[in-house]
């Protein structure tokens, strides 16, 4: 156990190219997924928040229930869609980094939407009342509300990124864990155990832990900033 840890730390300290490559790829893929998901589902969440329609409460409840949708189910869904025999098979996306990004973006969509709606609700009706009372259009008022939340958005993005970076189901099923192409921290850790290379698995595990802790730390900082202390 001790030697394992020492060897793992040695590999990290020596910037083992394999470990660094996998770490960087993971960060890039998961941040792409986060950006994509926020760009697509953030505005959708805002639309839901700022409009009224029948079943709105139920829809928001459903979104929040989906926070905990198992990653392998999303993996399976995206696999079935992207497989050559699936509806989007013609794109040849299965086992590519793009597939991981798409799958993770979908996976974190409920988190993005749910937290975005919570954030917008947190701004309070006073802000939009003020804006509307001074002659803002609905769109202008919505933009003001979005703007007021400021640091809370960082929390949304970081939470979404945290879920994307730590999931293994989607990356494994639609990425295929291809070395130098779609191998991420989580899939590599699974593989490391599978192949009995425990030192590499531990080294990658430490990197994943560092990433996860950094995300949590930053989310905390953002949270404190948004509360204005």
């Amino acid at each position: 156990m001790r030697e394992l840890l020492v060897e793992a730390v040695r590999r990290i300290a020596a910037l083992d190219p394999e470990v660094m490559d996998i770490t960087l790829r993971t960060l890039l893929l998961s941040s792409s997924a986060t950006v994509l998901s926020c760009l697509l589902f953030g505005p959708l969440a805002a639309t839901i928040h700022f409009t009224s329609f029948r079943g709105k409460g139920a829809l928001i409840g459903l979104v929040q229930t989906l926070y905990s949708v198992p990653t392998v189910l999303i993996g399976l869904l995206v696999y079935l869609v992207l497989s050559r025999s699936g509806p989007l098979g013609g794109l040849g996306l299965l086992f590519t980094p793009q597939a991981i990004v798409a799958g993770q973006a979908l996976l974190i969509a409920p988190v993005v939407m749910g937290l975005a709606i919570t954030t917008l609700r947190g701004v309070g009706s006073g802000v939009s009342d003020t804006a509307l009372g001074l002659g803002a259009s609905r769109l202008q008022a919505a933009l003001v509300v979005v703007q007021q939340a400021r640091h809370a958005w960082a929390t949304v993005v970081l939470m979404a990124f945290g879920r994307a970076v730590s999931e293994v189901g989607v990356a494994m099923m639609v990425g295929g864990n291809i070395r130098g192409h779609t191998r991420t921290l989580t899939t590599a850790i699974s593989l490391g155990i599978g192949r009995g290379d425990n030192a590499e698995a531990v080294a990658l595990g430490i990197m994943l832990l560092v990433v996860a802790l950094a995300v949590t730390f930053l989310a905390n900082v953002a949270g404190r900033l948004s509360r204005g202390t």
Partner: peptide, 18 residues
Amino acid sequence: LAVRRRTATVPQEPTLLR
């Protein structure tokens, strides 16, 4: 909106914008 812009409201407890 054009009609609304002819009015201006001061709420009881106004919320100021950032």
